[in-house]
Amino acid sequence: MSGKKLIEVNGVSKSYGGVVANSNISLDVEDGKITGLIGPNGSGKTTLFNSIVGYHPIDEGSIKFEGEEISKLRVQQIARRGLLRTFQQTRIYGKMNCVDNMLISIPHRKHGFFDMFGTNGKADRDKAEHLLEFVGLYSKRYLPSGDLSFGQQKLLEFAMALMNEPKVLLLDEPTAGINPTLINGLIDRLKRANTDFGITLLVIEHNMRVIMNMADKVYCLAHGEMLSSGSPDVVQNDQRVIDAYLGAH
């Protein structure tokens, strides 16, 4: 793997009214790696995510994706460049069945005007079903996705993201709300998404065990500031990180 930086966040600040959610945050996501983002509740992780994918304007700083400044672009434009996110509160198309959810998640970035009226070929269908199998939802593929349990919806959302063939996938707490017995399976799938599909991951996670197992590099936020960064071992043993977590509880 090259050490190429896919996402470069430089000195980003964002505040809501008087509340500073992010202050002068810098972070890099390396191509082909799994990068973790941790921090106690309210430390500004999701705000940073939203800034990267374009859900709100940032106050200062720059965000680059493959060397291109994206902090002024719209959500769709960013998504079409291959930078995708999942939501903490899972979002899927509830009235459509799982297969349709998958089929509409094909990568749209290559689409011209008349592709709107194309039909999905066998290759797309096969891929959709493979991925549903991959996350273990194959047997429920014709159910309206809104009828699935929360954990299953989360898996579906993950599969939809894979269907989109993003370059980078930003996952907001992928294990929250998932049955603990399934977490190991999920970690395995996330890792395989990274190794087999070659998707770079940036993961927000509360579950320390998960993130320490997976990530190549970890960043820790607290009170909107970057507290510590480095390999999982370094961050795990950083006294400031331990204090931040203990202090927060």
Binding site: V75, Q76, A79, F87, Y93, G94, H108, M116
Partner: peptide, 12 residues
């Protein structure tokens, strides 16, 4: 079903 999600997935 969810326009914001659709935008986030890059649908035009």
């Amino acid at each position: 079903d969810d326009e914001e999600k659709a935008e986030g997935m890059g649908i035009h």
